[in-house]
């Protein structure tokens, strides 16, 4: 049960942090017109395909004792995984937020502005009006990080009772040849994903 909880809170924290950056960034990119916007969009799309081990390797280089953030001692701690997974979720959340905002009624912007809304208030209104799309972005980001193994393994180190998540436990059991236990953990992971999605689904059903 410990690893389920570890998986959950690490993925949730990473998603929440990624949302705090990714949602405003997505809104900004969707609404602002600036030079190089196309390149930013292309870059965000490309980053969605970022392999987890590449993120793991990159962050490893950052937070290893030899790296620029080595002082903080983040390697092989849950915080290290959160950092890596946050980077992993960020392009997904930002991108899907861009999509959600772009899909909104074009009259929304004109309405907000003609009613005297400044940039921050317009951005907030856009997020609230597009909340279903933004929620979908968060769910997708959460799904990616809770199911990934590369970052959790490289940055967490699969330490029992500490940084062992469901996915690294599955990798471990598989390496030990305990395929049945690995599969059972996989099912548990699916169950957790189902519970999280069901909770959000209900939440979404209640708010118009």
């Amino acid at each position: 049960m410990g690893i389920v909880w570890t998986s959950l809170w690490i993925a949730a924290t990473a998603t929440a942090l990624a949302a705090l950056i990714g949602v405003p960034a997505g809104v900004l990119v969707a609404l602002a017109r600036f030079r190089g916007r196309g390149a930013v969009l292309l870059g965000l799309n490309t980053l969605m395909a970022l392999p987890t081990v590449v993120v793991g390797l990159f962050v490893y280089g950052l937070i290893s004792r030899q790296g620029p953030l080595g002082e903080w001692g983040l390697l092989f701690t849950p915080a290290g995984i959160v950092l890596g997974e946050c980077i992993l979720a960020l392009p997904i959340i930002a991108n899907l937020t861009v999509t959600a905002v772009t899909a909104l009624d074009p009259r929304l912007l004109a309405t907000c502005r003609t009613l005297g809304g400044g940039p921050a208030r317009v951005g907030l209104a856009v997020v609230l009006e597009g909340r279903h799309g933004v929620l979908a972005a968060l769910v997708a980001g959460f799904g990616r990080v809770v199911a990934e193994v590369g970052v959790a393994m490289m940055l967490g180190g699969n330490i029992r009772w500490y940084t062992r998540t469901m996915t690294t436990a599955i990798a471990l059991e598989t390496s030990k040849g305990e395929f049945v236990l690995g599969l059972a953990l996989g099912l548990a992971l699916l169950g957790v994903a189902f519970a999280v999605n069901a909770a959000l689904f209900t939440l979404r059903g209640r708010t118009p």
Binding site: R107, L108, A110, T111, T114, L115, G116, L128, E129, P208
Partner: peptide
């Protein structure tokens, strides 16, 4: 200056 001016669209957009 926009704060002193307001436009009613042909078909309104209402906030949710």
């Amino acid at each position: 200056l926009r704060k002193g001016v307001s436009l009613l669209l042909q078909t309104p957009y209402l906030f949710n």
